[in-house]
Design a protein around this nucleic acid. Structure first.
Lengths: 192, 192
DNA sequence: GGGCGCATGTAAAAAGTTACATGATTAC
DNA sequence: GTAATCATGTAACTTTTTACATGCGCCC
C-alpha cells in the first residue's frame, strides 16, 4: 500500500465516489498535496477492490453518458486507513524545480534574478488567494469548526498550505530587497 | 533534460566532482530540495557525457580505494544550464505523506491528534536546527554576503527552507491549541 | 463543425526506489 | 569478526508522466 492508495481510501472514507470523481477531487480539492492521472487511477482502483478495501456500490447510467462505477470503502478499508494515519511519517523531501534553479542564482545577473523573484512571488500569491477563497467557502458551512467532521481536516490542510505560501512570499520579498540593496550600493560606488 | 540532470550540472558548475561526490552533495548539501540514488546517478552521468554537457577531467587513484572519475562541466553544459535557470518554473505539487494523513484527522480521537502534532512539530524543529547550523557555518566564510558567489545561493535556499520549517511549526502549534480548546470545552460541558 | 466535458480505460516511456555486487581498509 | 566508508556499477521493481482511444451531446 502506497500513499496514492491511501489517498483514494481517504476520499471514499468521506463519501462514495466514481473513479472520475476521485480524480477530480485529487487534482482539484486535494490538489494542494497530491495528484493522479488516469492510468494510475484505474489499475489502483482494481487493486484496492481485489484487496477488499473498497467495493462497487452502484453503476449509474445518466442517459447518453458512460456508466459511472461508484465505489465505497469497506470496513476492512476503513480499518486499514485508520491504522495508517496513526503511524508516524517521515518528513518528505520537497522536490521543487525552482529551488534547483535558485541553487544557480549566482550565475545570473542580479537584475534578472530580481525579476524572477517578483514573478515567483506572484505565483505564490495566486495560490494563496485560491486557498483563501476555498477557506471562505468552508467557513460558511454549518459544521465548520467541529473537529469531528471532514470539513475540519480540509480546513486544516488549507491553513497549512496558506502558511507555506505566505512564508514563500515573505522570502521572495527579503531576497529581492537583499539583491536590490546590493545593486544600489554598487551603482553608488561606481558614481564615486 | 529533466531536473535531476540540471541538478548534477548545477553541482559541476561550482567545481569538478566525482559521481560519488555528487551523490553525497545532493543527499546532504542539496538534501533540502532533491535526492538521488546510485542507479539513477551513473546512467544519467553517462547521458550527460554523451550529450557533451560534462566531460571526464581526471581519474584519481588513492591507494587501495576504487578509482574516482572526476567530471567537469563543458561550455555547452554551462550554456544549457544558464538557459534553463532563466526560464520560468511552475509551482510544483508538494507530495507530502503527512498531509494525506491530515486529510483524515477527523477520523482520529483529538487526544491522539494532539500527540501527532507535537511529534510533527519536533520533526520540523530538528530540520530547522540542522539548517540553522549549516547557516552558521556559511556565515563565517569571507565571501558570505557577496551575491555573485555560490555561497549566496546556498544561503538563499537555507533561508527559504528555514521559513518553511518555521511556518510548519507555527501551524502545528495553532492546530494543537485549536484541538486542545475543543477538548477543554467538551470536558467543561460534561461536568455541568 | 470544432472543441470541451463526461467517463471509462490502455500503452509506452521516464523517473525513482530498494537491493545487490565488488573489494580494500579502518574502527569497535 | 562485524560494520562502516569509499567508489564504482547493475537488476528488478514501483511510481509517475504523457499520450492515445472511444463516443455521445452541448455550446459557440
Amino acid at each position: 500500500m502506497n500513499t496514492i492508495q491511501y489517498a483514494l481510501l481517504s476520499l471514499l472514507a468521506r463519501e462514495p465516489l466514481s473513479g472520475y470523481d476521485m480524480k477530480q477531487q485529487i487534482n482539484l480539492k486535494i490538489n494542494p498535496f497530491w495528484k493522479i492521472s488516469n492510468n494510475q487511477l484505474y489499475p489502483v482502483l482494481g487493486k484496492l477492490e481485489k484487496a477488499c478495501f473498497i467495493q462497487l456500490k452502484a453503476i449509474e447510467q445518466d442517459g447518453y453518458r458512460p456508466a459511472r462505477k461508484i465505489y465505497e470503502i469497506t470496513d476492512a478499508g476503513l480499518e486499514k486507513l485508520k491504522e495508517w494515519i496513526a503511524a508516524p511519517s517521515e518528513t518528505d523531501v520537497i522536490r521543487d524545480e525552482f529551488t534547483v534553479k535558485l541553487f544557480n542564482s549566482w550565475l545570473l545577473e542580479p537584475e534578472k534574478m530580481i525579476n524572477i523573484l517578483a514573478d515567483r512571488k506572484r505565483q505564490h500569491e495566486e495560490k494563496l488567494l485560491l486557498y483563501a477563497n476555498k477557506m471562505k467557502e468552508l467557513a460558511v458551512r454549518p459544521e465548520y469548526g467541529d473537529i469531528e467532521t471532514p470539513l475540519f481536516s480540509t480546513a486544516a490542510i488549507l491553513n497549512l498550505r496558506m502558511g507555506y505560501e505566505r512564508s514563500y512570499m515573505e522570502w521572495c520579498d527579503n531576497m529581492g530587497m537583499l539583491l536590490q540593496g546590493s545593486l544600489d550600493q554598487k551603482s553608488k560606488t561606481a558614481k564615486l
